[in-house]
């Protein structure tokens, strides 16, 4: 049985997660993910499984690591000029807090703005975090991002909504 993190601690964790991406501190961000974590952007809010259907993204920690290493490399032309992003999150609702299963699920509506050079676009949606406590600290087991226009024709999304 895990000690239940306070609602405030859970909310602070989620705000911090977004802040690390926005600050470009990608390695620290990646450390927030559990080893078998999944970062998933489905094409539809109805999608219940990333197997069998297409998704905008569905990455394990290794592929996220590739993504981060690539962004830091000198030949990531799409990051010249570098893309920047900003998450604006509503307070996350705690949908489940099960200390026995060590499972904490939250959902938060968000705006996401990405800019690069003179161009800027925004996305909006809901983000689901499935968390657990590992050695006394929270870790992401699943981050699921449902864009409200996931099925629309989208411009390139260079960073991490």
């Amino acid at each position: 049985m895990t000690t239940r993190p306070t609602n405030d601690a859970i909310a602070q964790f989620i705000y911090n997660e977004a802040a690390l991406v926005d600050a470009g501190r990608y390695d620290e961000w990646l450390d927030l993910f559990a080893d078998e974590a999944i970062y998933w952007l489905p094409l539809s809010a109805k999608q219940s499984d990333y197997r069998g259907e297409q998704s905008i993204a569905c990455e394990d920690k290794m592929l996220l690591n590739v993504r981060i290493k690539r962004l830091k490399g000198p030949r990531a032309y799409s990051n010249q000029p570098p893309a920047r992003c900003l998450h604006v999150l509503q307070a996350p609702a705690i949908e489940e807090a099960d200390t026995k299963l060590n499972r904490f699920i939250t959902r938060a509506p968000f705006f996401y703005v990405e800019s690069r050079g003179d161009a800027q676009f925004f996305l909006a949606g809901r983000v689901l975090h499935r968390l657990r406590v590992e050695n006394g600290v929270l870790r992401i087991v699943e981050k699921r991002v449902d864009l409200i226009n996931a099925d629309a024709a989208l411009p390139p999304i260079f960073l991490f909504p």
Partner: peptide
């Protein structure tokens, strides 16, 4: 398709 042809493709971005 996710890695190479998606709006979030790390290959297609370049």
């Amino acid at each position: 398709n996710r890695i190479v042809f998606s709006p979030m493709s790390i290959v297609a971005h370049d």
